Amino acid sequence: MSIKVEQVSKSYGSKTVLDEVSFECQKGKITGFLGPNGSGKSTTMRIISNLTYADVGRVTIDGSSYSGLPNPGRRIGLLLDASAHHPGRTVYETVRLASLIIGADRERVHTVLGVMGLDSVRKNRVKGLSLGMRQRLGLAMAFLGQPDYLVLDEPANGLDVEGISWLRAFLTTYAHNGGTVLISSHLLHELQSFVDRIVIIDRGRIVSEGEISGILDHTSAEVSTPDPAGLQAALAQKDIYSSPGFHPGSLTVQATPEVVGRTALESGILITRITTGAGNSLERFYLGLTTGEFSAGDASSLFPSRHVDAKNGH
């Protein structure tokens, strides 16, 4: 039981949004879907849920297309836009109407409102809800049909610390009970604490996919060298992953200092400093792979220089 995205491509005019995207979300696991703004995450999720059609490729859910599922609203829970609800309806009316469409009973409505912490605002109109409460409403709608799959686009957006902690525990329990989760988020440190797998997309192409433990369990080294490009190429020949470090001319390398030093010696590359890293983080790994269509520039140009006169203090 899985979600399979196979060789999916999508273009709008001359702009390619997705380029042969393939990955799998497995039963009982939480898959984190990561990428910069404009990288194709939301488009992929819309194709999975049949709201957008791929030009090439296919998506299957338990071997079937979304439209081929009997009553898909009960098989796959979706949260793609927390604001996609009629602003004039109450919280209860919104969930109750959805329950009638998918054939869930009234008792299920009361259950999800309670679990999602919405009982106290059940009579409130959607337009008056905070962003965090709208996210909870979206999650209530996604979970209404007791689905086998959850596809959630930025569900933690707007949640407070308590809400994020609750979401983490909720999804972990759901997956432990056999559910399949695909979740996108920019909260990388938070995702790192509970996802089982990651898929990273950059400019419409998958640049990494695999178990989170395979990324975070490596011993790492911080290396400074006058020739970082040469060392990176030498390491790549041995299938050793490296990414730019936090200091000019440095690399973070997923290998022990001994392995890095031996590789540099064999290649005739000078190393000026090498230390054992504290282990890789998802954020560091992610930044080493992605560039982003809307990457920001150097912020220092926004601020005037302020020279402090040591004698006068200004």
Rank of each mutant, 00 (worst) to 15 (best):
I200P: 03
N71M: 01
I201H: 06
F33I: 03
R203A: 15
P70S: 02
V109H: 06
L171T: 09
V181N: 08
S250N: 05
N71W: 01
S130W: 05
T90G: 04
K4W: 00
G68E: 08
G163F: 11
S185T: 15
Y53W: 11
D19E: 09
E293N: 07
T225M: 06
S120V: 13
T256P: 00
R75T: 12
I212P: 01
S2D: 09
A84W: 08
G158L: 12
G138Q: 06
T252S: 14
L131A: 09
L97P: 01
K27R: 15
A156H: 11
K238F: 10
A234G: 03
G103M: 11
V259I: 15
L270E: 15
T180G: 12
F33G: 02
N280Q: 13
F246V: 04
S267L: 12
V121H: 03
M45I: 07
M116R: 07
A169D: 15
L100P: 00
I206S: 05
N157H: 08
G288R: 00
S193P: 03
Q26W: 02
I101L: 13
A229K: 15
T180Q: 10
L191M: 14
L51M: 09
D202L: 02
F23H: 05
G178R: 05
D19W: 02
Q146M: 11
L289G: 12
V195I: 15
V21Y: 02
G32K: 02
D298V: 09
I3F: 07
T252E: 02
D19P: 01
M116I: 09
Y66Q: 03
V112M: 05
P147C: 11
E266H: 15
G158C: 10
K238I: 13
T225H: 05
G73L: 02
G32Y: 03
D160H: 06
H110G: 04
V17D: 01
G163L: 11
G145W: 04
G279E: 08
T272K: 06
H218D: 10
D148K: 10
P87C: 00
S295R: 13
T276P: 00
S42L: 05
A299Y: 10
P226D: 04
G128P: 00
G63R: 12
V17S: 01
D153E: 07
P226Y: 08
L80N: 03
K15H: 09
P304L: 00
A175R: 03
G138L: 08
E258T: 08
T31H: 11
T263V: 15
H176P: 00
Q26N: 06
Q7E: 14
T290N: 06
P155M: 05
L51T: 06
G138A: 09
A236V: 13
V17C: 01
S242Q: 01
S208C: 07
S300G: 08
R96K: 12
N177H: 15
T272F: 10
T43E: 05
L265I: 08
H189I: 07
G214P: 01
V199S: 04
R106A: 15
N37P: 02
L265F: 13
K238E: 14
H218C: 12
S213N: 12
D227R: 14
T44S: 10
L270P: 11
V308H: 10
G179V: 07
R58F: 10
V95W: 03
S185D: 05
V195D: 06
G292M: 03
R96D: 10
R122S: 14
N280K: 08
A299P: 13
R106V: 15
A156D: 12
R89T: 02
N280W: 11
N71E: 04
D196S: 08
R136F: 08
L34V: 01
P70G: 03
S295G: 01
